[in-house]
Design a protein around this nucleic acid. Structure first.
Length: 502
RNA sequence: GCCCCCAUCGUCUAGGGGACUAGGACGUGGCCCUUUCAAGGCCAAAACCGGGGUUCGAAUCCCCGUGGGGGCACCA
């Protein structure tokens, strides 16, 4: 393990602390889940702490229930956390809205040390300044009006209660360099940076202040975030420097792109269907958490030129930050299907039966794990999602099936010939005490021979008769499980349907 | 408009100067197996964005161009 992370700062092997810091502003999507996964893998691999921090300083964008969904998704995917708003921890509270006083104190500390200043400009003035700059094709930036205020005047205005924010006093000259684990040095001219607001007029911080303060206070050693933070990365370096803090290891991973490769993954692609972008949606569609984890891990990270099938313990062992890919990755849903199939097939039969239950229930089929048990071996290697099991084997649990009469006609056969085949099959089956696969198959193959039919012709008719479907689990085993009663019943029904065609 | 990042098959990627007739996976096509559908096995098509350098030698290093992505809020 040490060789895989050997190029990273030495503290990797001491006590690593990694945090997943989502905003409860909407549903957690697969991009967020992937970030959390990498956080988790790094923490577990180094036997460090995985921390959840809720970044809810924007009261306007707060979405009730979003925080709960975050916990639900992480739990479902199998990432247990060591510290967080719900479980507490040595650095509580872990919800930024509950830490307002901390940020205020730190912002004022920066004012005192000359690294920040009070700004009394109104939103209207800022908007007009920005508009004017854009009209002149100039980069929109704060014009520095309040930066020039002397501290005495600023303090006075503050004390009489004038609404204000605290801005960072970004150096006007020079450049700032930050070091990223996967991209190396990122350098930016300070002049292209802004005097960013650190503390809003409502007294709450913006990300730039809150995240830096918390990462330091919570002793976070590795900051993993997506590359959309690259433009303000140097600002964050500057903030750390202003406080005189030691920087964490910065890791800016690539973003996820839409399946088309055009643009950042959008929610629009989600909502039902094959392109669900929310993990919880994937769960409902019948994807295994193991498969989702496997799939997510491989979008922007790779192990070697061969292995791809991983479970969580594998990933914990094999993960390496330096193997994170710097370029954006388009999500590939067909690969998720593939992984899901692989993971379904690697499940123990009892386990698969257990997981199938809720999906049958969702389709109004009240089945039990025990009833599913004999079906599982028949479908395990045929399904790619849990929901497909319902489509494929739901007929086992319905009182009747509704075959399409036309489909009851055998290949290259007439309706009458097909009806005859059904009636001969019925007679044959009536001769059984009970249906056992071995002798039933022998008998049915013999019958096909007698009728001068190909096995596929006869079986095709019986398949549709008995299951109501053209695609089903293997016919013989299916009939065995269904039992004589149901098989005969459905055969009779098929005979009627065939007769009605003539 | 300005700033930052990125660039190998359709997609995810291996590759860190010679091991490259560029490897794997998904998807696609074909064959085998076969009671349907799968699964499995075999095979095939499919890529180093362009141009300059550096070097005996470049997918690998540098520069420019182009393309793609991201950012430019009292959002994160």
């Amino acid at each position: 393990m040490s060789s895989e992370v050997g190029t990273l700062p030495a503290r990797v092997n001491s006590s690593t602390r990694v945090r997943f810091a989502p905003s409860p502003t909407g549903r957690l999507h697969i991009g967020g889940a992937r970030t959390a996964l990498y956080d988790y893998l790094l923490a577990r691999q180094t036997e460090g702490a995985f921390v959840i921090r809720i970044e809810d300083t924007d009261r306007k964008r707060y979405v009730p229930g979003a925080e709960e969904e975050i916990y639900e998704v992480l739990s479902w995917l199998g990432m247990e956390w060591n510290e967080g708003p719900d479980v507490g921890g040595p650095f509580a509270p872990y919800r930024q809205s509950e830490r307002a006083d901390i940020y205020l104190a730190h912002a004022e500390q920066l004012v005192d040390s000359g690294h920040a200043y009070y700004c009394f400009c109104t939103a209207e003035r800022l908007a007009s300044v920005r508009k004017e700059q854009q009209a002149r094709k100039k980069p929109p930036r704060y014009d520095g009006l309040c930066r020039r205020l002397n501290s005495e005047e600023a303090l006075n205005r503050k004390h009489v209660g004038e609404s204000h924010v605290i801005r960072f006093k970004t150096p006007r000259q020079g450049k700032t360099t930050g070091v990223d684990v996967i991209r190396g040095e990122i350098t930016v001219e300070n002049a292209t940076l802004d005097d960013y607001i650190l503390l809003k007029s409502d007294g709450l911080p913006v990300y730039h202040l809150a995240a830096m303060v918390d990462d330091h206070l919570m002793e976070i050693t590795h900051v993993l975030r997506t590359s959309e933070w690259l433009p303000t990365f140097p600002l964050h370096v500057l903030i750390y420097e202003a406080f005189g803090w030691e920087q964490p290891a910065w890791v800016h991973m690539s973003v996820l792109l839409n399946p088309s490769g055009k643009g950042k993954l959008s929610k629009r692609h989600g909502s039902g269907g094959a392109h669900a972008v929310y993990p919880l949606e994937l769960k409902e569609l019948g994807y295994l958490p193991e498969a989702v984890v496997n799939w997510l891990a491989l979008m922007g990270w790779s192990y070697d030129d061969r292995a791809e099938f991983f479970d969580m313990p594998d990933l914990i062992r094999k993960f390496s930050m330096v193997k994170l890919n710097a370029s954006p990755a388009a999500v590939n849903f067909s690969k998720l299907d593939h992984f899901n199939g692989l993971h379904i097939r690697s499940l123990k039969q009892e386990d698969l039966a257990k997981r199938l239950v809720s999906h049958f229930h969702a389709a109004d089929l009240e089945v039990t794990e025990a009833e599913l048990a004999p079906i599982v071996p028949l479908i395990q290697e045929r399904i790619r999602t849990l929901n497909e099991a319902v489509e494929m084997s739901g007929f086992f649990f319905r009182d009747t099936v509704q075959p399409d009469p036309q489909q009851l006609i055998g290949k290259n056969m007439s309706a009458a010939e097909s009806a005859a085949a059904v009636s001969r099959s019925t007679e044959l089956i009536q001769g059984f005490d009970r249906l056992d696969a071995e002798s039933l198959e022998l008998a049915l193959r013999g019958l096909a021979d007698d009728l001068d039919l190909k096995v596929g012709q006869l079986f095709g008719i019986l398949r549709v008769a008995v299951t109501g479907q053209r695609v089903s689990p293997p016919l013989i085993e299916t009939m065995e499980i269904l039992g004589m009663g149901l098989v005969l019943e459905r055969l009779n029904r098929a005979a009627e349907l065939l007769d009605s065609l003539e």
